[in-house]
Structure formats: structure tokens, C-alpha cells
């Protein structure tokens, strides 16, 4: 919410400044912004609905039962997959993770889950492919998944 207010203020002030400096350019800039918005809106709306679905279906109890403390490597794999498919708002990720640990999920598994939630998105893949090309999108998401798994094993080795 606060980030939103800051962002809107900065955007409005800069647009006004730009307008006084050069009307034509400002018009061009806003037209570009609008076209970008129009282009990504369908994908963004799908993402929003998927967030709703993810949060409603994946209750902390359900996830904790899948990735308990004794779930080991299979649990890490499973939580990376679930984290890659689901999308939740970023400020929900860590509070959700700590609820999971309290409900009996293992720390390395939760680490993989949270990391892949933030770095990998099956649902954002179409949008990412459209903007950067398919190869880039798949490789970037794959590297995010690899990062999440390695991170989980480091946590396992160091903190457990």
C-alpha cells in the first residue's frame, strides 16, 4: 500500500515535469505505457485469478502435511514443484512459510517452497515468453528452480 502511494506520487510528479519540458515526448511516453499495459493485462489478470486459486486451495495444513520434517529430498522436490506452480503475493511468502514450519513442515522443504514461489512461475511463463522470448523465459525459470533446490540443501546442511 505504502509502495503504491510512493510509486503513484513519483509517477505523477515526473509526468508533470516531463509534460512541462516536452509535451510531445510525454504524450509518446504515456502512449507507450498504455500499450504495454494493454499488452500484458490479459496475462496479469490470469495471474491474479491464479493467486486467488492458489491461496484458497493450498491451506497451510495441506502443505505442511505434504512436506513434513521427515520428507527429505522428495519433500524438497515436491515443495519446489508446488512453489513453482503456485503464486502468492510476495509479502505473504515468509509469513506463510513460518506458519508452515509451525505446522510441522521441514525447514529445508519450506526454504525450497518459498524460494521457488518467488523465483519460478509457471503462470507467468506465457507473459515472460511473450516479452523476452521462449528460450529466455524457460531458462530463467529453470535456473530459479535449480537455485531453490540448492538453497534448500544448504539450509539442510547448515541449519539442521
Amino acid at each position: 500500500m505504502i509502495s503504491g502511494i510512493i510509486l503513484y506520487s513519483v509517477a505523477i510528479v515526473l509526468t508533470i515535469t516531463s509534460f512541462f519540458k516536452d509535451r510531445g515526448r510525454t504524450k509518446k511516453a504515456l502512449l507507450k505505457s498504455f500499450n504495454l499495459f494493454k499488452n500484458i493485462l490479459p496475462d496479469v489478470l490470469s495471474i491474479m485469478f491464479f493467486v486467488g486459486l492458489s491461496l484458497a486451495i493450498l491451506t497451510p495444513e495441506l502443505i505442511s502435511s505434504l512436506i513434513g520434517e521427515s520428507s527429505g529430498s522428495l519433500g524438497i522436490l515436491l515443495s519446489t514443484v508446488v512453489g513453482s506452480v503456485a503464486i502468492v503475493p510476495s509479502f505473504v511468502v515468509f509469513p506463510l512459510g513460518s506458519t508452515l514450519v509451525q505446522n510441522g513442515a521441514g525447514l529445508p522443504q519450506v526454504a525450497a517452497f518459498m524460494s521457488s514461489l518467488m523465483a519460478v512461475g509457471f503462470v507467468t511463463l506465457p507473459m515472460e515468453s511473450k516479452l523476452f522470448g521462449r528460450k529466455f523465459a524457460y531458462l530463467r525459470n529453470a535456473s530459479g528452480a535449480v537455485m531453490s533446490v540448492i538453497f534448500a540443501y544448504i539450509i539442510w546442511g547448515v541449519m539442521i
Binding site: 503504491g4 503513484y8 513519483v10 509517477a11 515526448r25 509518446k28 511516453a29 491474479m48
Partner: peptide, 21 residues
């Protein structure tokens, strides 16, 4: 989520447009 999106995405896109020109 849509409300959150509306509080972030439009100003970011305006900034992207301005930086672009």
C-alpha cells in the same frame, strides 16, 4: 490481488514509458 496490482503496475509502467523517452 487485483487491487494490489492496480496500486503498483500502472505507475511502474508510466515510469518505464518516461524512462524510455
Amino acid at each position: 490481488s487485483i487491487m494490489d496490482m492496480l496500486s503498483l503496475l500502472p505507475p511502474v509502467l508510466v515510469l518505464v514509458g518516461l524512462l524510455d523517452v
